[in-house]
């Protein structure tokens, strides 16, 4: 079975040790997904697998056979920027840009989690109608994505803007 990456089918690597991260970065020339620790601690390698955010450094490529992977390169359709990408620019939600693809992919996955009603560790009302979109909820849910330049405020502002906009639609 193939792995679908940004809509294209790719053969799984013969070496079972190859992580999804190294597959896209080293073998498929999709370096937008970043390696920051290779041990699941920084979130820079976050991609979407069947719409859920995963750490590609902690995922063996062969585990993704038959599944659909979206990397930062596959997020924006047809050359335009994804709304989150534009919001990150508008709010200066990055400086060096290295953690940024992971932050954005993580935010896309996180927004889907909120829409599915998945609670976080700080969600108070588990039985309530819909989840709060408080700043704290977003901060908690994004805390697995480290940023060393200190763009945290801009990142949360960008995600908040998109969440508010989606809620209004």
């Amino acid at each position: 079975m193939a792995i679908t990456i940004n809509g294209s089918d790719v053969e799984a690597p013969g070496d079972a040790r190859v992580s999804l991260l190294d597959l896209v970065r080293d073998r498929l020339n999709l370096p937008g997904t970043k390696k920051g620790c290779n041990q699941g601690a920084c979130g820079a390698c976050t991609v979407l697998v069947d719409g859920e955010r995963v750490l590609s450094c902690m995922t063996l490529a062969v585990q993704c056979e038959g599944r659909s992977v979206t990397t930062i390169e596959g997020l924006a359709a047809g050359g335009a920027l994804h709304s989150l990408q534009q919001a990150f620019i508008d709010h200066d939600g990055f400086q060096c840009g290295y953690c940024t693809p992971g932050q954005i992919c993580s935010a896309v996955g996180m927004i889907a989690e909120i829409e599915r009603g998945v609670p976080s560790v700080i969600t108070a009302d588990l039985g309530g109608e819909g989840l709060s979109l408080s700043r704290e909820e977003i901060q908690e849910r994004m805390s697995g994505n480290l940023c060393r330049c200190g763009a945290h405020n801009g990142i949360i502002d960008a995600i908040s803007e998109i969440l508010v906009r989606e809620a209004a639609e």
Binding site: K34, I72, E73, L81, F88, C96, P101
Partner: peptide, 13 residues
């Protein structure tokens, strides 16, 4: 900014 948010800014590796 556009390069960075698309993961298209090339880093050393």
């Amino acid at each position: 900014g556009s390069l960075k948010v698309r993961g298209a800014a090339p880093f050393a590796a």
